[in-house]
């Protein structure tokens, strides 16, 4: 058998290297750097860096994501899932903005700028007042409205037994009706459907 473990491959990661790549933030605040930013600084940055896609008030331009409002829509026919209406943790906002935004110029924002933009997004969602200053210290004061509405995958309890019964093979229905046609919607790309090449 092939040997297992202790290959002596790779080398020790230096602290500077870990610091450069390990930028992730957790809900308990682990990973947050020193820094702070207020709502009004965040608004200026947002208008400059974010509003062309996300709108001045986080309402979203075109098909770009809406970041604000939508509260109370999750049970309805057209849920609007935003930072305020849906996201469970503030840390995710900070981490994602810092890691991946602005789209096309990721990791260009300083920690203070990320604190300020995050504060402004919280303000747009009516989670904080306009005098709020987000910092590593004040981070723990903020609770997201939808935090308690997520739960662990419960398919094992709710679905697996129900969908593991012996299925019908013969005379399973009295009749069959077509209730919906994709062709009526006609949203399939040209050349993609209808046997086209």
């Amino acid at each position: 058998p092939s040997r297992e473990g202790d290959f002596g491959l790779g080398r020790a990661a230096l602290p500077e290297e870990v610091a450069a790549w390990d930028i992730d933030i957790r809900p308990d605040g682990q990973g947050l750097p020193e820094g702070s930013g207020d709502v009004w600084t965040g608004e200026e940055l947002f208008v400059e860096q974010c509003a062309m896609c996300h709108g001045d008030f986080g309402e979203g331009a075109g098909r770009w994501p809406q970041l604000a409002m939508g509260q109370g829509t999750l049970e309805g026919p057209d849920p609007v899932k935003t930072v305020g209406s849906y996201w469970p943790y503030l840390s995710t906002v900070w981490d994602y903005v810092h890691r991946a935004m602005p789209f096309g110029n990721a990791q260009s924002l300083s920690p203070d700028e990320v604190y300020a933009i995050t504060a402004y997004i919280l303000y747009l969602n009516e989670v904080v007042e306009d005098d709020f200053v987000l910092s590593r210290e004040s981070f723990a004061e903020v609770t997201m409205p939808n935090e308690d509405n997520f739960y662990m995958d419960d398919r094992p309890e709710v679905e697996l037994a129900r969908f593991s019964e012996a299925p019908c093979m013969e005379a399973c229905k009295d009749g069959v009706e077509i209730t919906m046609h994709a062709r009526v919607l006609d949203v399939t790309p040209e050349g993609g459907g209808d046997g086209g090449g």
């Binding site: 849920p79 996201w87 469970p88 943790y89 995710t92 509405n149 997520f150 662990m152 995958d153 398919r155």
Partner: peptide, 18 residues
């Protein structure tokens, strides 16, 4: 959280549906 969580009719959502 924002993505790859599954919203259900009661407004709550499953997470970690791997």
């Amino acid at each position: 959280t924002s993505k790859y969580t599954d919203l259900l009719p009661d407004g709550r959502a499953r997470r970690f549906t791997w």
